[in-house]
């Protein structure tokens, strides 16, 4: 089963085309996401670069991350839908963070794609 997160990351690209430059100015960090389809499963990697140029989204690990988030597919979608607070997820151990904590906390709702809806 394809990861739901993949759709989420895909939908960030057109958003970045429009607001990427301004987001880069505010965020200034590269995030890696290590997404697990289930706890302990083989991870899929995504890179959200909000540090360079107009920002970029890519599959896989690109460049050096300022912070790496490890969480399940369902949990990332819950974060994106506003039903899971990533800080709470971190405290509960549902999400792991590696890297610079100050940069990690730059991952805020501002970063999420604001998508037109059917």
């Amino acid at each position: 089963m394809a990861l739901k997160s993949e759709k989420l990351f895909e939908s960030m690209t057109p958003h970045l085309a429009a607001v990427g430059k301004d987001l880069v100015a505010k965020i200034g960090a590269v995030f890696h996401f290590e997404i697990l389809s289930a706890p302990g499963a083989e991870p899929a990697w995504f890179t959200v670069d909000l540090k360079n140029g107009n920002g970029a989204i890519a599959k896989g690990k690109q460049g050096t991350a300022d912070a790496t988030f490890t969480l399940t597919d369902d949990d990332l979608i819950a974060v994106s839908n506003g039903t899971l607070n990533p800080q709470v997820a971190f405290m509960q151990g549902k999400m792991k963070i590696k890297g610079n904590m100050a940069k990690a906390t730059k991952f805020t709702p501002d970063v999420l794609p604001k998508n037109v809806k059917l």
Binding site: N85, P86, Q87, A102, T105
Partner: peptide, 20 residues
């Protein structure tokens, strides 16, 4: 960098509030 790294607890609190 000092400012940012001073208080991790405070950072986490602010982060939580940003998502709340």
């Amino acid at each position: 960098e000092d400012e940012e790294e001073i208080n991790e607890e405070e950072l986490l609190k602010q982060w939580g509030a940003a998502w709340d």
